[in-house]
């Protein structure tokens, strides 16, 4: 059984460390905020100009002037700060954010990521994704391992226009946790109930298997 969106988020939350400043993208990455491990302190950065994003507001605390990068109404956590978009991307481009989590359409063995544009389909724009992948040292990509027809999105070379080149080192999918190094995907963990054979079948890019493949702990 592939894991759910919530479980992917739960697994990614294990990458959070005490004292981290973290940027969570839209979609599954946003869910990571629900699984921050007990006993650690992290600050969430929202690229529209907020460091210290809190939970969603109650109806009476909704404030049109306080939103996250997904344009959802939010609150501020204790110790939050506010700043301009230029300052926000100085944090990102300058490598000050400890962990960035974002979604993708495709990744490949060189660490390339495609996440913003499907030629012939509607182009909505890259938002802050190109800045995030270029600026962050520590990026976790979250995505489905294959599309609905079973076509792999874990490739030898991305087919779609890139968001960033040679910048991705870790991928968490509904089937597996993969590390990208030396021109290959290295299988680190498999989802509960998912066989190594299924991962091999749904991974188009070069895949290196360890002797023992641990199961994702959720």
């Amino acid at each position: 059984m592939a894991v759910s969106r919530e479980q992917i988020a739960q697994r990614i939350a294990q990458e959070l460390k005490d004292g981290y400043y973290v940027n969570l993208g839209i979609g599954i990455p946003t869910l990571v905020a629900n699984y921050i491990p007990e006993g650690i302190e992290v600050m969430l950065q929202s690229e529209n100009g907020l460091l210290g994003m809190g939970e969603f507001p109650t109806e009476e605390n909704v404030d049109a002037d306080l939103i996250n990068a997904g344009k959802q109404t939010v609150t501020m956590a204790k110790g939050a700060s506010l700043f301009s978009s230029a300052e926000s991307f100085a944090m990102i481009r300058g490598g000050h954010v400890d962990l960035t989590v974002l979604g993708a359409f495709e990744v490949d063995v060189s660490g390339n990521i495609a996440s913003w544009m499907i030629p012939g389909k509607l182009i909505k724009g890259m938002g802050g994704a190109m800045d995030l992948v270029a600026g962050a040292e520590n990026i976790v990509v979250t995505m489905m391992h294959a599309d609905k027809k079973g076509n792999s999105k874990i490739l030898d070379a991305c087919t779609l226009p890139l968001t960033g080149a040679q910048c991705i080192k870790k991928v968490v999918t509904d089937l597996a946790v993969l590390e990208i190094k030396d021109g290959a995907f290295h299988l680190l963990e498999r989802a509960p109930g998912v066989s190594v054979e299924e991962i091999i079948e749904k991974t188009a890019g070069k895949l290196i298997l360890p002797d023992v493949v641990p199961v994702m702990k959720l």
Partner: peptide
């Protein structure tokens, strides 16, 4: 289309 940080 311009990356958000580049636009800023």
């Amino acid at each position: 289309l311009t990356p958000q940080g580049t636009l800023a």
